[in-house]
Design a protein around this nucleic acid. Structure first.
Lengths: 125, 125
DNA sequence: TGAAACCTTCACATCAGTGTGAAGGCAAGT
DNA sequence: ACTTGCCTTCACACTGATGTGAAGGTTTCA
């Protein structure tokens, strides 16, 4: 699949797909003429990236953790690939993610409780 | 409390506290000489703001939902304050927050599972 | 009174993520 | 062959969140 189709399938502008590649998040093959060539896995991968960006992670962090999210049970399963520093970094990132989840869940609950207090049933006209 | 103390208590630069005020997130009183004067509630409020910003919300969204998060059971409990549009906006925001939570939780689990697979016990030297 | 530490506003700079357009090559249909 | 639509790289610009510094007034304390 070329960049246009991936863009259509994901709703992400081609400009952004090239940017993510520049940031090391995507590594499409290249056809003989230089066109980018994406596999089917690129579609969920791009969605993943967008979700993480929207949740406050930077491209830098995403680049680091992405290999451990895709390929479940592949290359990275070899413990040799995981240095102490990387493991510590992953743990730290897990904690930061957990903090975000806690914060978001707390505020989601507060908003729900508010709506529920003020409009216990459905919406009035 | 003046801006310097609030900064020290929260770890947020004074520059940012002024910026949040400019964005309508904080509304400190003013002393006779023009100095900003914050109440004790400003400390958790600033933490709240930072958490939400770090979780991907914009100052614009935070400005809208903040009144419904603090003051639990005060002014905004009067249903008259909640137009249909605001309620719809809140619902939409709750959904977006939920999406972020789902995304973050999924990836947190993936990272944990990976670490656990590769290093079931503690860290090796 | 003078120094140190605070405060004020104003403004310019950076960084990440994103928009947009130019200039040109490639591919497919009529 | 020509048009249409895709692709390429390059580059300038914007926005939101943040850093930083200038120029000047205030509070505090020795």
């Amino acid at each position: 699949m070329r960049i246009g189709e991936l863009s259509r399938r994901t709703g992400v502008p081609t400009r952004m797909l090239r940017y993510y590649e520049e940031q090391g998040l995507l590594r499409p093959e290249r056809a003989a003429n230089g066109y980018r060539s994406y596999g089917d896995g690129a579609v969920p991968c791009v969605r993943q990236i967008r979700g993480l960006l929207d949740s406050g992670l930077t491209t830098e962090i995403i680049r680091v953790i992405l290999p451990f999210l895709s390929d479940p049970g592949e290359i990275h399963l070899h413990p040799e690939c995981l240095t102490q520093e990387t493991a510590a970094l992953l743990r730290g990132e897990i904690d930061r993610i957990q903090s975000r989840i806690d914060c978001l869940a707390r505020n989601r609950d507060a908003l729900r409780a508010y709506l529920d207090t003020v409009q216990p049933g459905t919406l009035r006209p």
